[in-house]
Write a protein that binds this DNA or RNA. Structure first.
Lengths: 198, 198, 198, 198
DNA sequence: TATGAATGAGACTTCATTCAT
DNA sequence: CATGAATGAAGTCTCATTCAT
């Protein structure tokens, strides 16, 4: 018999939050159920009332992080006058949330190597990318239709935009002193926009 | 180099190769000294004659992988007639090695989340990115000097190029059916080139 | 008995029945209070209102099973014309209930190894055997008195009968394809009868 | 890489012996890898060099016990002049080893309830019974051929003999004060012999 | 240089039991 | 009477590392 819905929801969130803190601080490798218990103030046994296994908890954590990042991505685009403006708004939104994004990066990046083998992780990442690209493609498409942009493949262009944003964040991990996410995302996107425009 | 050093070097390479196979197949999490011993045909004790710890072995493995990828990147650019050609050659080289690159991705990506905390990993990745960008920047610069490209910040542009390449590979992990590395790297770089050119 | 006592009795029986199902299906090892709660539709806390501990519940379950088997054994013998007929009736009764007996065997057999150490289990099994043998002995004795049987020790002979019946069931567990309980109990008892008769 | 053959054999035997002591003393439920480690003076990790799991160790222990009991059963029958003598020798051998048999009973009996569900345990017990019966059947058959015994089904009779022996041991667990293994096995077999003989 | 048996800390997970409501 | 969330001791198993030979 599972706990009452409201308690469940609260506990679930509480546990995921604690796990996320740990992973953000020390990496996915350092995630220990013991420490999750300690940080939540719950007992180890209680964790298992809410998550069948550590793997389940990890997955829930990944899904929450991806959802949060999608909130940033999907929260734009509706109102901008031109496609160019919409893309700039998208970039602004990403940069506005950059603190949170970088804070949570150890979580999603911790799953990357697992993604090669784990179906559930694959599914989560796949869904994430689908929604990510599906947010950007209509912007590109409207730009083409309005004559702002050249006649490119809209999804290809959306993928290029995503690649610049995500790729820059990736390079930032490689060298945090060399890459300035805000500046380099912005300049990368500007170059891309230059190529897209007529 | 004395014969003994030769043996050492050979053993070292052999151990790294075995470890790389394991990680390429099953991820960094699945790297076990036991299995390295089994695959090399050496005893577990012997591994520790060549590497102080598993961590040292991992690091050596990372460095070899990054070096290999740099071989691809640094092996170009000298002869091309124009900057545009040079960049296209770079893209061609990357795509030519795409099989090997994707094969080795679980290795480098396995270290990403570790990079947030581990100095040695940071140093290796930093050096890698430095050389990566240092290979691309002169191409951009020569393009500017020749009047092919606009007056952009050469390093910023190089970072944009790297972001497109690396970002596309990253997105490929998210959804291997949606992203076609060759096609999407090429189209991304073309869009970028469009923005760089006069 | 007050109504409350009725409820108690009913709940108790319900809990024992659920536990018995679990053990019959999956063995004593697989008995979990969680699952008893689930199967009864009661909460885990409630189980402890009716049984002080899991051990108490187990013991109650064992006693019920042994009682059921005694019902088979003790339900005979009164009316038969000869001792030989009475023993054959006993065998018939056992074979008639063989389905139920084999179904419940994981329960009683689950306690066998515990019987070496646990006083309460010992007492339950001891009482069971006493009543079992006490059902058979008078039959043998009457057979001796009537001149049907030789002058054997009646209890020894009763134990031999019980050993054949219980031993055959035991061998059936060893190899269910080799032993046919009905056939082999019958033939074993026939051989024994041949030895007992003048 | 598994340990050297001689060490392996010795360690394996040592571990099984320690486990057997524990189970003989306290039952299969009480078998803890921790305690096996303690009693052998080995570390917990070492146990897992020789047995993949606790279950594997348990099974090896079961097989050794069954083999030991078969040694008693199979070690007879070759030389006796008559079938009757051969069966008596068999009984004598069992009774001679009764101390060891009863000592080891918690081991084999601990597996009985598991036998309902576990294939490996089933296989071990099945093989045991097969060999047990295959030792007795030729004796019965020779008794029939020599005219000593009636024309019974030899395997049925062998099963009856085994049922008396094993069944008596089983009843002994039910009530150790009521059953005297030596006496009751002997008397049970004598009654059976009476029925078998012409 | 090489071995491989041994270690033991530490990870995950289970489950009987309690207790505030 | 009844609940069910919470507990935490206890168990199995893994694996990097060591060391005597």
């Amino acid at each position: 018999m599972s706990p009452r819905a409201d308690v469940t929801e609260q506990r679930t969130a509480q546990i995921i939050a604690a796990a996320s803190e740990i992973v953000a601080d020390n990496g996915l490798d350092a995630l220990r159920m013991d420490e999750v218990a300690e940080r939540t103030g719950l007992s180890k046994g209680t964790l298992y009332l809410y998550f069948r296994s550590k793997h389940d908890l990890s997955l829930a954590m990944l899904e929450r992080v991806l959802q949060r990042e999608l909130d940033t991505v999907e929260g734009i685009s509706a109102t901008a006058a031109t496609a160019e403006h919409a893309l700039r708004e998208f970039v602004d939104a990403v940069i506005r949330d950059i603190q949170m994004i970088t804070r949570l990066m150890p979580i999603s990046y911790g799953f990357l190597s697992i993604a090669f083998r784990n179906r559930q992780v694959q599914r989560a990442l796949k869904k994430y990318l689908r929604r990510y690209i599906d947010s950007l493609t209509p912007i590109i498409r409207s730009g083409i239709e309005s004559g702002e942009f050249q006649e490119v493949d809209p999804e290809e262009a959306a993928i290029a935009v995503a690649a610049v944003v995500e790729g820059t964040m990736l390079l930032w991990i490689y060298d945090r002193s060399m890459i300035d996410p805000a500046r380099h995302i912005r300049s990368g996107i500007e170059h891309l926009l230059g190529g897209l425009k007529q």
